[in-house]
Design a protein around this nucleic acid. Sequence first.
DNA 1: ACCTGAACACCGTTCAAGT
DNA 2: ACCTGAACACCGTTCAAGT
Lengths: 181, 181
Amino acid sequence: MAKNKREIDLKVKQEELESTAARLFLTLGYDGTSMSRIARELGVAPNTLYWYYPSKDELLVAVLNRQMSATLARLPGIAGLPLKDKMAWALQAFEQSRELVTTVHARLEQSAVIREWHEQFHHFVEAAVIHTLEAEGVAPARAAMLATVGTFLVEGLLAHPHSEAQREAILQWFAVSALPD
Amino acid sequence: MAKNKREIDLKVKQEELESTAARLFLTLGYDGTSMSRIARELGVAPNTLYWYYPSKDELLVAVLNRQMSATLARLPGIAGLPLKDKMAWALQAFEQSRELVTTVHARLEQSAVIREWHEQFHHFVEAAVIHTLEAEGVAPARAAMLATVGTFLVEGLLAHPHSEAQREAILQWFAVSALPD
DNA sequence: ACCTGAACACCGTTCAAGT
DNA sequence: ACCTGAACACCGTTCAAGT
């Protein structure tokens, strides 16, 4: 039951490492954050990071998964909300990680690890949206198409600056157009 | 009327430079294409490029403008088409520059030049879409919102791999939902 | 198991110098 | 006006060595 000391230490170290990396990635951007900078912040040599993660991209994936599970933990709380509010919630949840969202898209071409993470992430999100739509009475094929559209809209809103009114109008229109009356 | 020799030479050089850069950016990606690589392909020293462009980002902007005006030249040909076909055309037009689209988004945070270009580009595209929608009888405020949505859908389709059927379904649904019947 | 110093092969960019 | 050689201050990553 009780974990041995070594394993606990590793977890603690990774936790420290990933939260520092997350903070810097979000503040300075992925490209703006060098491995050396992260290491300096932690008080270790730059190459020490490579004992924990095989590459900067793998470190990013670890950070993404942290962010993800933090968000997922809050998911049950929105189960009862209408579609529009669910999308607004998702938007607000990802807004804090905006920098990471664009980074993932930017590195898709260059990193297989990121590509795998991204694909799996989209599958997960789309499955959740499809489930919601079907629960609201949308036919399966149509629900799949609309889930993709909903995802594109959320990504678009994340990537481009916009007013509260614009966001509201877009989500409202989507919910009305998507759901059977 | 006749341009002096120097000016002609500059244009020719820039043309050569930008088409080489464009080819490499599209093939190897922006990050995957070093200034040295472009220079080597042209048979000049790496720092020679900095006589023509103050930075790699400015070279990218020059390439983007080239690509843009090539696309714009084909614009009059689609004037009469229905909304859905116009979007499909835009999608196909940008598909060749997919790599550049994601690069622009990736570098927004880091480069003011790219940010300016991107903003101006979106203004232009949205104005064109709004014009089309209003011509089809959509009210101005609604047309503006739908132009944003349309842009997000095109960007989403560009960024994510998808089947022909998916694309068709999404564009069809958007056209039907957006236009008054 | 964990960490380091030193190095490698790059990168975008600058600068002084050549023609 | 146009181009170069040499350098600068980085970068992610590797490796052999230490404890």
